[in-house]
Design a protein around this nucleic acid. Structure first.
Length: 383
DNA sequence: TGGTGTTTTCCTGGTT
DNA sequence: AAACCAGGAAAACACC
């Protein structure tokens, strides 16, 4: 994702409310279920496991290890929560990674973010403190759970890292404070922080799935990682392995060839954690074409994502294809949504005549005769 | 519980 | 070369 798209995501985050169904949580908000977290980047050599389970959210790791994308999501979360006017933010003030963010003083945050700065500062202090006190025992437990679920890891290249776990004895009180900026906050956690945060505050002590529970040792180089615009140099800075070494491991770990089709759902153990997050009977949201239509017919909330090419004919164009895909992913709680996938779903609409082909024009689609709600003069459509 | 519809994921190959 | 398009295949998931 490009940096501009990131900012766009922030600025268009308000759009999310427009597609909100019932009392859904904010897409970037930490889930309610409190689960432990790991935060040790020294474990980045277990990256293949992260690759297997996916990228991390800001609430799944210590701020010191956030990527640019994590920072953006964190800011976006607070923008939304505080109903802050995101238009006052600049890209430059949002484009930073965790290590840089952690070096900012309260005054700097206030000058950069105005009224939102105080809130961000408080959140940051809470997160630093909270993550500084995480008990490594939980990490140990989580990795064991992972191994129960995925014993095949032990037989994979790098699986020896897991075997070492059986020899590990964790003592919570021996945990080191964060080496980076903000380590002085370790131990500053108030009792109230242990049982959650007040509304409007930050609640990083919760995770939503096996992927998040088990693998908070960050992975900016994951192909699925949303913050792909993180500085490559940062990868070197954050992790004990060089980018080159990581790349080599990645190559080594590639399966011979992926089977076709959607990957099987994770098995039993991890499923538990995924289900814990999911609403058992979550209402299915609007269809994709309706989602697209709604963006188009609300130009005030469109934020330059799409535009009509020919309103009368129902021809429209994606201006920020990846941003729209991200928004769609937010709606479906699918952080790995891409335009590539979204467009595949769009193409299925041709056969059903919800969309018509527009040949030769990139990113341009046209509503078909089986779509509705977009025509001028149609009930419910603003003229 | 099984069927159906829709969407997601991955893929190969082609085009711009 | 990168981004996009086209469409097959298979699977996940919601809903009935």
């Amino acid at each position: 994702m490009s940096a501009s798209n990131d900012l766009s995501s922030i600025l268009t985050d308000a759009n999310w409310t427009m597609y909100q169904i019932g009392a859904m949580e904010h897409p970037l908000a930490p889930p309610a279920t409190a689960l432990p977290v790991m935060r040790d980047p020294q474990m980045a050599n277990l990256q293949f496991a992260t690759d297997f389970l996916g990228p991390l959210k800001w609430y799944q790791s210590a701020p010191q290890f956030w990527t640019k994308q994590n920072v953006l999501e964190w800011i976006s979360y607070h923008v939304e929560e505080s109903k802050f006017d995101a238009s006052t933010l600049t890209m430059s003030s949002c484009s930073m990674d965790g290590p840089i963010l952690c070096q900012l003083s309260r005054e700097t945050l206030l000058s950069m973010f105005g009224p939102l700065g105080e809130r961000l500062y408080q959140s940051l202090q809470e997160l630093k403190a909270k993550y500084g006190m995480e008990d490594l025992n939980t990490t140990y437990d989580l990795l064991n759970i992972l191994l129960d679920d995925f014993p095949e890891f032990l037989n994979m290249p790098g699986g020896d890292d897991f075997k070492l776990l059986s020899t590990v004895i964790v003592h919570g009180e021996e945990q080191k404070s964060d080496p980076g900026v903000g380590g002085d906050m370790v131990g500053a956690l108030t009792p109230s922080s242990d049982n959650g945060y007040e509304s409007g505050s930050t609640s990083p002590d919760s995770l939503d799935s096996a992927r998040s529970r088990t693998l908070s040792f960050l992975n900016p180089s994951s192909p699925e990682y949303g913050g792909s615009d993180s500085d490559p140099e940062l990868s070197d800075l954050q992790f004990p392995l060089s980018a080159k070494e990581l790349k080599m491991e990645e190559e080594d770990l590639k399966p011979c060839k992926r089977s076709r089709g959607r990957p099987r759902k994770l098995s039993r153990g991890s499923e538990f954690f995924i289900e814990a997050k999911k609403n058992k009977h979550a209402p299915r949201g609007a269809h994709l074409w309706e989602f697209i239509r709604d963006i188009l017919i609300h130009p005030d909330q469109n934020n330059g994502l799409m535009r009509w090419e020919d309103r009368r004919e129902g021809v429209f164009k994606f201006l920020k294809s990846e941003a729209v895909a991200q928004l769609w992913g937010q709606k479906k709680k699918n952080s790995s949504m891409t335009y590539e996938k979204l467009s595949r779903a769009m193409r299925y609409y041709y056969k059903r005549e919800i969309l018509e082909r527009v040949d030769g024009r990139r990113l341009v689609y046209k509503f078909g005769k089986n779509s509705s709600g977009w025509k001028l003069g149609e009930a419910g459509v603003a003229m």
